[in-house]
């Protein structure tokens, strides 16, 4: 009675192939590709000209401290809260995950590939916004580059974690988009997407600073200005990461 088959999971080559396929799916989904890259860029273009002439602090302008953090956060939030959950809901609804379930590939590979592609797409969106901001509007680099990169990474993790909650509770791709859109606009509104948190009633502004969108915008702004990121922002983003992971871990279903 000798075992004849060794347990062998698909290796890195398989994951790379899956990432390539997921990337092609994103590229061929025109709306999913264009909206997260172009909508924030459009918002930047409408406000960058004036903002780039208003110096706020440390030689940094309103473009550096308010517009760019908002644009980066929008890119990451659209991809993390709207796009990624809708892909996962589609995969679950259409039975793609079920089909993969009868191959040696673990469904978690799909999750990993989606996360990698989403991060790459977000980085492209951020890079495009940065290039336009630097070349067309004379934007300044962050005073603390390392801190800014760390905040972007934390923001991505928080938004994808929030997106996993959407993916866990949405029964269909359409409902994932609907829930994702509502979550995006609510978080965005409370986080200063429509005119700054200081224009909100005090309690809402306070809450917005703890929620992931507002926390990300404020933390990025601090990193750009070279001042310490507030504990409230870090706790808000960290709590979203943990909360999203726990909720998704309990509620997410592959089928």
């Amino acid at each position: 009675m000798t075992p004849l088959v060794q347990a062998r999971r698909p290796g890195p080559r398989s994951l790379v192939t899956l990432i390539r396929c997921e990337a092609k799916m994103v590229v061929r989904d025109t709306a999913g590709l264009v909206v997260p890259l172009c909508l924030p860029l459009l918002i930047m273009l409408t406000s960058a000209s004036g903002a780039s002439r208003t110096v706020v602090a440390n030689g940094r302008t309103a473009l550096d401290l308010y517009v760019l953090p908002l644009v980066f956060t929008m890119v990451v939030a659209i991809i993390g809260i709207i796009n990624m959950p809708s892909f996962l809901a589609y995969y679950r609804r259409s039975g793609i995950l079920r089909r993969l379930g009868v191959t040696p590939a673990a469904p978690a590979m799909v999750l990993a590939a989606q996360a990698v592609v989403s991060v790459l797409q977000a980085l492209v969106g951020i890079a495009v916004a940065l290039v336009v901001a630097f070349l067309a509007f004379g934007a300044n680099p962050p005073a603390d580059l390392g801190r800014a990169v760390a905040v972007v990474a934390l923001t991505m993790t928080a938004m994808y974690s929030a997106g996993m909650i959407v993916a866990a509770v949405a029964p269909t791709p359409n409902s994932a988009v609907a829930i994702g859109l509502v979550a995006f606009f609510v978080l965005g509104a409370l986080g200063g997407m429509f005119g700054g948190r200081d224009s909100l009633p005090e309690p809402l502004a306070e809450v917005g600073g703890w929620l992931p969108f507002g926390a990300a915008v404020e933390a990025l702004s601090s990193a750009w200005a070279g001042i310490a990121v507030s504990t409230a922002n870090l706790v808000g983003l960290g709590a979203t990461v943990v909360g999203g992971a726990v909720v998704a871990g309990v509620l997410f279903r592959w089928e």
Partner: peptide
């Protein structure tokens, strides 16, 4: 296993799907 209904990434081409599934083995 061939399931009753085909459930595959709809936007991928035939060779891309075949290469993806081949990569699992």
């Amino acid at each position: 296993v061939q399931l009753q209904q085909a459930h595959l990434h709809h936007a991928l081409r035939v060779t891309e799907l075949v290469d993806l599934y081949r990569s699992f083995y």
